[in-house]
């Protein structure tokens, strides 16, 4: 279970991790500046297990994988949004970081609510209001990548099987 930090539509990768910090790409460095240009207090308040909720087109803009890396390095357990920009979506999956597409949850869950997520079923529960929401299930291929912890471990495991 984690506390929700809720933002609006089109949260871009420049506000998730501004380019001025990309010259030091270690996850713990990126974590210090996550969401800085949209919410200067975020890194002070976020705790392990917390959840980010965004509106439409979360993660639009640059292809920087630093964006999901910085979010994960802050301890955030997942991002829920009504939709994701495709490169961010791909990057999150590829590093094995769970993201859930669920317009209803993105709309109805309030900032600061306590929320739990069952990743095996995609069930999102707002523990503050008692409401539940069903996120879209991942295709099997993508589930496999997440379960292996990312694209490279997945490709490696598959290579070993074929050998």
């Amino acid at each position: 279970m984690g506390k929700v930090f809720k933002y609006g539509d089109n949260v871009d990768t420049d506000v998730i991790i501004p380019a001025r910090y990309l010259n030091a790409p270690a996850p713990e460095e990126l974590a210090k500046h996550c969401m800085e240009d949209i919410d200067a207090e975020f890194t002070k308040n976020v705790k392990a297990g917390d959840i980010i909720i965004g509106g439409a087109n979360f993660g639009c803009g640059s292809s920087r994988e630093h964006a999901p890396i910085s979010i994960r390095a802050c301890g955030v357990s997942c991002v829920i949004a009504s939709s994701f920009a495709r490169i961010f979506y791909r990057n999150a999956i590829n590093i094995g970081f769970p993201i859930l597409e669920c317009p209803e949850a993105a709309e109805k869950i309030n900032n600061g609510d306590e929320v739990s997520v069952d990743f095996s079923t995609g069930l999102i529960t707002d523990e503050t209001t008692g409401e539940t929401f069903q996120a879209a299930a991942f295709p099997e291929f993508i589930n496999n990548i997440i379960e292996h912890g990312g694209l490279l471990p997945y490709l490696k495991a598959r290579q070993e099987v074929s050998e």
Partner: peptide, 18 residues
């Protein structure tokens, strides 16, 4: 198309991508 660094790494290794 644009991708992230993990896709780049996978692409450099395998010459393929999904």
């Amino acid at each position: 198309t644009g991708v992230g660094s993990t896709d780049m790494a996978a692409g450099m290794a395998s010459g393929e991508n999904w």
